[in-house]
Simulated assay, not measured.
Amino acid sequence: MENDSPTVPKRTLTEILYVVFLRLVAVTSLWFGLQYWGMLVGYSLDGQGRFDLLTVPWQVAAPTLAVVFPVAALGLWLAVSWGPVLWALAAIVQFLMYETWSEIFGTNTFVLLFHGLVAALYVLFRIAFWLDDRRRAGQVTTHLP
């Protein structure tokens, strides 16, 4: 049964793809968060990443990311404005860890490439929304004689 109610907004293809994109990033953010929790409680890395065995920089970074990534995942899944903000915060922290302070945290090229790809796709979606808004604004204008 088709719903033609005027109260239900029609979504554009861009909006639908954007929500799908956010949910895929949400799943990966949850995965990142679970990896950090697994490390901190000794489940992964043969117990070598337990919180009490980590160096101080890791004791600061790992619990922070273990909390921020799952919360960002929730915001991304719900497609609310704070989801991408928290994801960006976590991505910046990981960029600083693996690029700026690589002598402390090591390197992780995959994570950096992944975050770069997600950021680029996010910017492309924002540009697409801007272009859609401009197109709609152009259709609404009236021509006065």
Score class of each variant (00 low, 15 high):
M1F: 05
E2V: 11
D4S: 10
S5C: 08
T7N: 13
V8L: 14
V8G: 10
P9I: 08
R11H: 11
R11D: 09
T12C: 04
T14K: 06
Y18K: 08
V19S: 12
L22V: 01
L24E: 03
L24Y: 05
V25S: 01
T28Q: 11
L30I: 05
W31S: 14
F32H: 10
L34R: 06
Q35G: 15
G38A: 15
G38Q: 13
G38D: 10
L40R: 00
Y43P: 01
L45A: 15
G49M: 11
G49R: 04
F51K: 01
D52V: 09
D52W: 02
L53D: 11
P57M: 04
P57A: 05
W58C: 04
W58F: 07
A61I: 03
A61K: 00
P63T: 01
P63M: 04
L65V: 07
A66D: 00
A66T: 01
V67R: 01
F69L: 06
P70I: 03
V71M: 03
G75A: 09
L76T: 04
W77C: 05
A79D: 05
A79P: 00
S81M: 09
G83C: 06
V85Y: 12
V85M: 10
Q94R: 10
Q94C: 07
F95E: 04
L96K: 03
Y98N: 07
Y98Q: 09
E99A: 07
T100K: 07
T100V: 15
T100Q: 11
S102V: 01
E103M: 06
G106V: 00
T107R: 15
T109E: 10
T109N: 10
T109A: 03
F110M: 05
L113M: 10
L113Y: 08
F114A: 09
F114K: 11
L117W: 00
R126C: 15
I127G: 12
I127D: 11
A128S: 10
A128R: 07
W130R: 14
L131N: 09
L131P: 03
L131W: 08
D133Y: 14
D133T: 11
R134H: 10
R135S: 12
R136N: 14
R136E: 13
G138S: 12
G138F: 03
H143I: 12
L144M: 14
P145Y: 09
